[in-house]
Design a protein around this nucleic acid. Sequence first.
DNA 1: AGATTTTAGTTAAGCGGTTAACTATACGAC
DNA 2: GTCGTATAGTTAACCGCTTAACTAAAATCT
Lengths: 335, 335
Amino acid sequence: MPTLRDVAEYAGVSTATVSKVLSNKPYVSDAVREKVLQAVEELEYTPNLAARALTSGRTNTIAAVFPYVFDPVFKDPFVMKILEGVEQVCTDNRYNLLLSTPRVNDDAIDPIYQQLLLSGYTEGVIAIDNVPGVSFAAEAEKRGIASVVLGHHDGETQVQSDNRNGGYQLMQAVLDSGHHAIGIISAPDSLNLAIKERLGGMACAAREANVPFAAMPIVDGDFSTGSGASAIQRLLSQTPDVSVIICLNDRMAIGAMQWLQHNGYAVPYDISVVGYDNIPLAEFCYPPLTTVDQQPVKLGEYAARSLFQKLNKEAPPNVVLPPQLIRRGSLAVRQ
Amino acid sequence: MPTLRDVAEYAGVSTATVSKVLSNKPYVSDAVREKVLQAVEELEYTPNLAARALTSGRTNTIAAVFPYVFDPVFKDPFVMKILEGVEQVCTDNRYNLLLSTPRVNDDAIDPIYQQLLLSGYTEGVIAIDNVPGVSFAAEAEKRGIASVVLGHHDGETQVQSDNRNGGYQLMQAVLDSGHHAIGIISAPDSLNLAIKERLGGMACAAREANVPFAAMPIVDGDFSTGSGASAIQRLLSQTPDVSVIICLNDRMAIGAMQWLQHNGYAVPYDISVVGYDNIPLAEFCYPPLTTVDQQPVKLGEYAARSLFQKLNKEAPPNVVLPPQLIRRGSLAVRQ
DNA sequence: AGATTTTAGTTAAGCGGTTAACTATACGAC
DNA sequence: GTCGTATAGTTAACCGCTTAACTAAAATCT
């Protein structure tokens, strides 16, 4: 592969001049500029990123940090949607995207992630930060690496969905549909700030409708489809006469629906089910799932754009996207 | 951030010695080794990847190349599954994963991808190569970068699903269920070698059953859900009396099912539908979709493992994974 | 015209590692 | 005691690029 030096010799100038031309610096005559570009073209020269990174710190690479909390991130379509948005903006900006999937440990930061930060190979980081206590973005910021928080962790720059409002809308829709015996399938909110927000919004909507939120039966799953099935089972064994189940994500909702149907319940006639996230499956499962859309692609896009702004020394604002209730057949109306 | 030199000074040795210790080279006494490791620990030293890449070419990074053919790769759950497998093996090997999503142009190779290859920042490449004519893996290999082909392009190292056999099994299942009026929703096979294979397998199964394959009506979609809906419409307007539709991927199958249901057809009683890929949705849609599983996670794992073998100068074998027919409710039995 | 500033380009010193080449001991073998 | 050879560690060149510092010529100002 040709190097800068090769180009310089070929064009009959110094390496510094070539460098200037390539980075569009002034003080180069048009004639020379032309000659250099010609040489670049003919030699098919492409700058060596490693060398460039070494001197200037610019690697043209940012990292998306999607921590493993319960199960592989790739299992979660919602996360994939975010990635889709991030990728789009990266490509538009001619940046490379590095995928980092560190494990969450209470005690120490995942050494792989630490290496990523210290290795100087990523200019910035977009981290999903919803686990209390640990913040991957903060870890980056601490080491002088630009970061954007996707989620409810406080950080220098945050992009988030208004989970509180989403929870509010969801509970309101359930109450409006005439349900009073409400069961909830959640996830340990000690492990996820977004869940905490959603529950807060739900409680608020219940309060406004004079329905006692604290009295609603609630069991925890771990976000997976399977955990939704086992959660509904536990919930019904405690309180058999609920008329609707609010699940704090779609995958658990679908697991719960499946279990109900396999066990002789008609959804939504016997029991309604609603979810959260609006994953692609929600539209096509049977019955189609009432849920809340978080605009995940937009979340990813905003996060990436904010990061690029930071890299350009601009100060991006925090972003809060409004969630949208999606009404579908899984929520029945009761008189 | 501390550098090698800092560590060397702190430990009272030369940088060469530190380098030896860190790369586990011989000719270092235990005492010195200990001292160096101690220094590394205390200074929280991590080698600068860019510098290491510059001298040794090792960047601890490989790239997954998922070309945009029709629509964003992230829209395709099958591709995400492959990525899941790749990611897992990368993490196990303490490698970083770079995501590259070049555009497919007949004329020229995507400059972004070219830059990735020439920039010397990726040690190897895993490329989904199913488009005839262009091969991203070959492009890498041409430049001396190790590569693995995921798909049906011939390449130095190939990992693929036996699409021919998958098509064979699918057609066999349809014929075994008593169907004779068979419609096919495909994709332009001039654009995808895997599709060509599947069609070949299907033709083979039809031939063995003495059913004329060439007579079956066939229309093309573009893999998307929406295109499945419009394809079925076109197909039925030509040949209204088919009893089953074979779709060459699940997303089109689901689009077709939706269209059928919206237009008064009962699936599978009026018309059966089968797909290909076994995406997560296939299990949960209504009715659940009969399809073919390609073991995408395994495909990704094998591809990554093969690549790491190549990086270690071993010669990995080509891998062909057997697909598996998944029977579900969308395929009815006819007498 | 002479002094000053601007423009155009070169030289060379790093960036932070790796590694070939070299030096200096220590250890056996004869 | 001498020689040969592992062993332990150092020195310094180099990877390919960027950029501060410098020189020289041209343009502008007094």
